[in-house]
Structures are given as C-alpha cells and as structure tokens.
Nucleic acid binder design. Sequence first.
DNA 1: TCCACGCTATGATATTTATCATAAAATGAC
DNA 2: GTCATTTTATGATAAATATCATAGCGTGGA
Lengths: 228, 228
Amino acid sequence: MDPRCGCDNCELKTAFFESFRKEELGIFCDQKVEVPYKRGDIVFSEGDEIRYFAYLKSGLVKLFRTDPDGKDQIITIAGPFDFVSLLGVFSETHQTYSVSVLEDAVICCIEIEQMKAIALKNGFFTLNLMEKLGSISNKIILEALEIRKRHTHGKVAYILLKFSQSIYQSLVFDLPVSRREIAEYIGMTTENVIRALSEFRKEKLLRINGREIEILDLEALERISNYG
Amino acid sequence: MDPRCGCDNCELKTAFFESFRKEELGIFCDQKVEVPYKRGDIVFSEGDEIRYFAYLKSGLVKLFRTDPDGKDQIITIAGPFDFVSLLGVFSETHQTYSVSVLEDAVICCIEIEQMKAIALKNGFFTLNLMEKLGSISNKIILEALEIRKRHTHGKVAYILLKFSQSIYQSLVFDLPVSRREIAEYIGMTTENVIRALSEFRKEKLLRINGREIEILDLEALERISNYG
DNA sequence: TCCACGCTATGATATTTATCATAAAATGAC
DNA sequence: GTCATTTTATGATAAATATCATAGCGTGGA
C-alpha cells in the first residue's frame, strides 16, 4: 500500500507526514476507508451516532439542519479538501447536522476512536488538526455574519460570488443547488431569490440558463454584494 | 503558589490536571497572568497581533467586528468560563474580531507560544482543548443559524431568553447592552428593537425599567421565539 | 451645575420582503 | 412516453421592516 494513502493534495497528509512515525502512518492508511457517493446521497443525518471523522476528497456537499416543522437550513457548502466533520466531532456523540451530496463525491472516513487514539499520542498532529478545524469553523462563522448583514440583493450577489470565486474559480458555472436551496442558505424566500436573479439578468449582470450562470459584470455584482 | 492556580471552576483546570505532569503544571501556573478589566475596556482589537490565549474568569464581554464604514456587528456575548480566544487563535497571526467588556471582568492570559509548546508535547491536553474550543464554535454557529431563521419579534424574544436562561439564570436581570447593541447582535435596526420591546411590555410579557428586564410571561415569550 | 450627547421612545412614511396565486418548464417515477 | 411533482418564473397584494423626524430622558464631562 502506498504510504501516502494515494491521495494527492490531501490536507491531512501534511499533518500526517510531519507528525507520524512510519508505523503510525501505516496504521492510519490501513484504517481509512474511501466511500464514493452520488448526487443526492445522504452521507449522514442529524442525530446519527458519530463514528467516523469525515474528510471530503472530491465533489461537493451541503451541511444542513432540519427544524421541527421540516424546514431545512443550509449551514455551508463544502468542497474538496474541506472537513465534513466539524469541531463537534470530538465533543459530541451524535451529529448536530446532516450532510448530503451536491456533486458526486468521495469521502475519506477514519474511525473517530482511531483518530482520538492518534491525537492522544501525538500533540503535533492534534495541533495541526485543530488549526484546520479552526479555520473551517471561522469560515462558517464569518460567512454567517456576512450573510446576516446583507439585504436580499446583497445576499444573492454574495452567494453567487462565493460559487464563482471560492468554489468554481470561474465566471461561468453550473449552480449546484436549486433556488430554494439558495433561499435556505441565505434566509430568504425562494420567490425573492428567483426575483433577484431575474433582475440581475435584466440588468445584464448575469446570463442565466437554468442552473448555468455566467457573470457578465463582476464589478457591479461585487458592488451590490458590498454596498447593496 | 497554589498548584491549582487558585481558580475554582476553571474549565482549563480539568484538562490540566488530567494532562500534566507536576512540573508542567508549575510552568503553566507561573506563566499565566490574570488581568482585571472595567466595563467599557477593550481587551483586544481586530487586527492586533495574537500573543495570548485568553480565558474569561469572571464578568461579561462581547465579541464583535467592525466593517469598513464603521458599523459594528456583535458575534456573540461570552460569560464566565468561556474562551475569549476562538479557534483562530492557533491558525491566525492577527485577531479577526474585537473584544470589549460589558461587565467588569478578569481575563486569564497565557502566551500563545507557551500554549502551543504544551500542546505539542501533550496530546491529551490538546484534545481536551479542542473539545472545549469546538463546543464554543458550535454554539456560535448554532446561534447564528437560530438568529437567521427568525423575524424581528422572534429574534428579540430569542435574545432575551438567551440573557435570562444562558447568562443570568433569572427572570429578572439588567440588560448588559444597549438597544443599539442588541440590534447589532441580531441584525435589525435600533428602532425596531425598541418597538419590539415596547410591544412585549404592552402585552404584559415584560416589565421594563431602562435596562432592567423582568420576564412576566415566559411561555408566551418562548412561543414567540419558537414560532413568531 | 449645566450642557452636550447618546439612549430610549414613538409616529409617519417609504421601502423591502413575504405571501398568495397562477402557469410554463423541467425532472423523475412508472 | 406519460403523468405527477418539483422547479422556475412572474404578478398582485399584504405584511414586515427600514428610514426619517421629533422629543423626552439620562449620563458623563467641563
């Protein structure tokens, strides 16, 4: 078996190679399981027992909660090399959110007890892990604050820029989510998300064809995101 | 010197005593500095270099960001035994938010390099620390989502219940913040916060005298928070 | 003590956003 | 392929929220 677990660009790898003695790394690579998922699959659900630490190798997933009357609320959208397990993974026994797949994904799973055992023995590894988990949590908190302070147009512009810049690094992309899911993400109604998109289209800021989006006027969109 | 650092109820203590050899604990207790703050004091500001890990021994503080045009946004309010340093403390070099004092406070400061040095040598300590940091980050994320999904009345009711239940454990309490700060916390205008409070008063849900609040009808307030 | 300033408060109005209604288009199940 | 269901879309209207204006009150500083 490839001691590098065969995973190019794995964010955990740096931590591993700097942290582990050879025999530890071997144990780790033997234990980890890579699971492929299809669009629409549920990786785990709110309330499930936490058994694995999960890391997204490829694809796109959404983290969300479902409230008592069945309405979903999207916490964030995670891409390659993001952790799907957030910080609660070490302090909770059951998942506090669900994860479903937006674009076919491969998730690398490591038994949480195995992870803890390694962490106990290896402070360097744990510190690395904490830095990575910390930066993801920070990103989610920052995003929540950015969304909170914007009005509808600013919110929609903000989320479009997130897709364009953070996720796809392109001015042309296919939205991985429905208008309803965007609404669940930024806390507004589906109708107003559609309206905002239509207005951006009419003002020539976007070209829209179903879920295909092209940003035609980046500066204007950024202006709306920042000051709209 | 008291090997327990003389701090009853210190959340770090459990981690320390289970994690440390005696000499490590001694180093730790020698290094830590307790700093008293008065209401209105700034503990640190956005952009400051991160030099200390900060833990709130007593009092009440607010964590907030200031956007380019000078408007503040409150991230959360932290009470005794909360960490003032969030996860970024290990991954960032500069503060991403400011902390100011709402009620006279004592903050326990430990040099971040010292903290890292201990963490590197001691996986158990780091794992404990990560659990604690994780649960605080989770709390902030959860709070952001709860606020996002509510309308004005629900938001104000939610925040009043937070003060009553999480912070003061009493139906009677003095608001530690102005109406404007509540608005900055939950993302609405000051006028509408005042209006919501006035309406709650008129409907006999609250008794209000300046910043003094008494919750008269807890069930109704909870109903508004959950379904309003 | 007095003054200036920020905080609290309320009303009137304008704007934004949600809700309800309707319909075409797309998607998925059979 | 057909049908049911969801998604996208738009308009009309109602409700919520922000903005602007005004004023009494309280607090801290000169």
